[in-house]
């Protein structure tokens, strides 16, 4: 053991063999073993093949889906990939209904957890970001005329928001039906005046934000 050498060198010759105790060192888990050996985990069995024959190991890192993989809804009816997708769905459904779950590594190792099963077909979809709504098309011509008259009477009080709440339609629809050009110009001027008061940092931050927003539609 290389660690014993300095000890031998430092010991005087007389006291080298005082008693008959063997000169072996003992190390506790509090030192080397704790740092080196315990952290040396065995390989995860999912990455190593147990058989000598060549096998396919498919364990991709998590990443955003490839846009070149056309979703099955977008495939034409006569495309051969439709069948493959259907077979995959069938297989994953069978797999999802299994009772015993496979583990990701051998029992007793720290990495051992149960594998995720594919979602059952009966399970709910993830929650929607906005509550979905149906278009109602319930407003009659009389309603639309009333919207216009209200908006023309008092555009400061009867804003798009208030009219939309009153008639249970979208603000976009109110703007489409009864657009008040004077008010929109006035508001735009106010906004412009507020924008002119911005300093350098705020303006640059806003411009950068607009530039980043353009990238949303470019790189997905």
């Amino acid at each position: 053991m290389s660690t014993c050498k300095p000890l031998f060198r430092t010991l005087p010759r007389q006291c080298q063999r005082i008693n008959n105790l063997p000169l072996t060192q003992t190390r506790h888990e509090s030192t080397t073993r704790r740092h080196k050996k315990l952290l040396h985990l065995p390989e995860s069995p999912s990455y190593t093949s147990t058989t000598s024959e060549p096998t396919l190991i498919f364990n991709p890192p998590s990443a955003s889906p490839n846009v070149y993989h056309t979703p099955s809804k977008f495939l034409p009816k006569d495309d051969s990939r439709k069948k493959l997708y259907a077979a995959a769905v069938k297989y994953s459904t069978q797999f999802a209904h299994r009772t015993s779950t496979p583990t990701t590594s051998t029992p007793g190792t720290p990495l051992q957890t149960t594998a995720f099963l594919p979602p059952k077909p009966s399970s709910n979809l993830p929650p929607p970001i906005r509550t979905p709504y149906e278009k109602k098309y319930h407003l009659t011509d009389a309603d639309i005329a009333e919207i216009r008259s209200l908006r023309a009477q008092d555009p400061v009080y009867w804003t798009r928001v208030r009219l939309a709440e009153k008639f249970k339609c979208s603000q976009f629809f109110v703007g489409m039906v009864a657009k008040n050009h004077e008010k929109s110009e006035r508001v735009a001027e106010e906004h412009q005046r507020a924008r002119e008061r911005w300093g350098t940092r705020r303006r640059m931050a806003k411009e950068d934000r607009g530039r980043r927003k353009e990238l949303w539609g470019q790189d997905a």
């Binding site: 955003s64 889906p65 846009v67 070149y68 993989h69 056309t70 979703p71 977008f74 495939l75 034409p76 949303w216 539609g217 470019q218 997905a220």
Partner: peptide, 15 residues
Amino acid sequence: VRAAAAALKGWYLYR
């Protein structure tokens, strides 16, 4: 928006 763009790319890049 990114998800919608990805869906559109999935449609247009059909091969």
